[in-house]
Design a protein around this nucleic acid. Structure first.
Lengths: 189, 189, 189, 189
DNA sequence: GATGAATGAGGTTTCATTCAT
DNA sequence: GATGAATGAAACCTCATTCAT
């Protein structure tokens, strides 16, 4: 009986993972507003199953990107330790952030969206990434490399917005614009 | 008869203006994807009236912003003539552009949207504003004030994206981020 | 003043004729259910004008075909006088009727329709054409050429139905089918 | 689980049947162009349910009549085997076809309609019934009972048209007209 | 836990018809 | 008489979401 419960739990976990994978794929293809049916179909489960695991769309979006958000946050201190200067670390970190956002079709837009259905995701990203960004930014400011009047939150929103790509404004464009923005943040010597 | 026709035409024009005003207000509150019903209701007309004046949503969105888009484009040569340096003109122009975009909630997003219903608006903005921006940018490059590897289109998309505001990222933030971006575009002397 | 009234009346008559012509053309192209706007546009008048002259669609449809309906009815006695046998006259009359119906796209369908908006037209056709057809049919029966158990109304409905054409069942098909039907009505000798 | 799935599937099947019955009834009353809402309401389901089972109107119309169309087609060889002469079989088959068409108000009209929403149904009827009719017709021609210049398709269209009934032209009239048409198709000996 | 059928609100669009000028 | 802008009912179709099994 205890075992059967464990087996069932394991099944549920696998179902959950399957939904997450399907959602990730569908989000890339159609954006985070894709029909739930589409995701359920791709995961080969019923729509009810999606709703059981993720009651709101934001829960699903958040869960889909949580791993990567966490990984992105954890990257900050590692880069700070590994790079010669804080600003190098900041540049590389934003580079990683851009790559993350751009490859998730619609995530940049979701970040900046006021859609109440996405505020949950918004909160997660802010809570997780802003401190990471703030750590890098603070180090840069302390080192006199970056102006002190830029907040981590504002910078992240700006970077997030710059990552809203399209046919005529692609990942490379986004990277260059973010680089220019960071360059503009340098203290003018 | 000629007079009555003129009166009627005048009435129609006022209705049209009313729809435009209502649409502008609704767009600010809900974005450019707001339901047509909402706009019709706010304008105190039937939905059919909205469709009569603006057969597609893009027609409406375009009409709402056309005046300002044109005004913005016309500002470019005037600033170029009035300012001491091209880069000053560029800064002031982007400042005006940001003010325009930010006060029209959702227009920045519309500029970058791939939504087929907005491609018309997209085309108008690109056709009108990119040349204006290119003129300023070219002058800056010729004066050696700005790096030559930034295209007017990409810059406009970036500025447009930076103007997607929200409760925690407002017009002042957008202006500062755009300024930093432009600063980053300067030739490092 | 009397003259100006006459002039005005003449104007109105011409407007009316213009609407009729436009309606006839539109009916051929799109069927009798075509949008009123289409007809008004083609006639280069306002929709209100169409409604003033023809309050209901049936009024318009009826008016459009009235001339031809009358001409068709008047043909019956002339054919009866001119042809050697009544059945020849009947054949030639139905031939003319078929040509009339088939070239008026949708009229055959309108004849058989129960659409309350068309009952007026239905009544006109019945009142005008059934007596004409009955005259021919009666002569045929009297001459022993056609069975006595076919009513003029039923025959007309049948012919009307057979004239509902389409891409794979055209005017020639309709004519042949009507001919076969008439052949079937002959008294078997 | 397997059982509950079976129960659910059974429920769905009943819903589907309910929709079909409702659609059949509404089609009789209002023709095959009746609003989907009407059908949904009569079936006591939501419109979404109708769309789930029958994505397009043609799917619904086709499903409503499919059984009877098939039964009609299958009747042809059986009659051919059972009757003394091919022409008797043809007469009885068209009689059955007429009964089928007339009791399904609007189906005759649908058969001849150019409405793109009905082309599917049109195709089904043509594909299923024309071969059946052709078999009978061919046998009649081979037996020298019917003229060779009538195609199965044209005959079916003609019969379909003759089955467009109304208050003053009912099923009995349709049957008699079809009989006369067939009589007219006989080789004159 | 999983299912997916059913629901129905919500969006779009079309046109017949009215009415003030 | 003529006009055509305005109206709004009505049809379509799509999903997010619920719930009985």
């Amino acid at each position: 009986m205890a075992e059967s419960a464990g087996v069932r739990r394991e099944q549920a976990r696998r179902t959950r993972e399957g939904v997450l994978e399907a959602a990730a794929a569908v989000f890339v293809a159609q954006g985070v507003q894709a029909p739930v049916r589409e995701i359920a179909h791709r995961a080969e489960v019923g729509v009810g199953t999606v709703y059981r695991h993720f009651p709101t769309r934001a829960d699903l979006v958040t869960a889909v990107y949580r791993h990567q958000i966490d990984a992105c946050a954890e990257l900050a201190p590692r880069l700070l330790a590994a790079c010669d200067t804080p600003s190098t670390a900041l540049h590389r970190w934003t580079g990683a952030f851009v790559d993350f956002l751009v490859t998730k079709h619609g995530l940049g837009a979701a970040l900046g969206s006021e859609d109440p259905g996405l505020e949950n995701l918004h909160a997660v990203m802010v809570d997780t990434l802003v401190p990471a960004c703030a750590e890098l930014l603070g180090a840069c400011v302390d080192a006199g490399e970056v102006r002190a009047d830029v907040t981590a939150y504002t910078l992240m929103r700006a970077v997030g917005n710059l990552c809203i790509t399209g046919p005529d404004y692609d990942q490379a464009d986004a990277r260059r614009m973010v680089d220019l923005l960071l360059t503009g943040c340098r203290t003018t010597s």
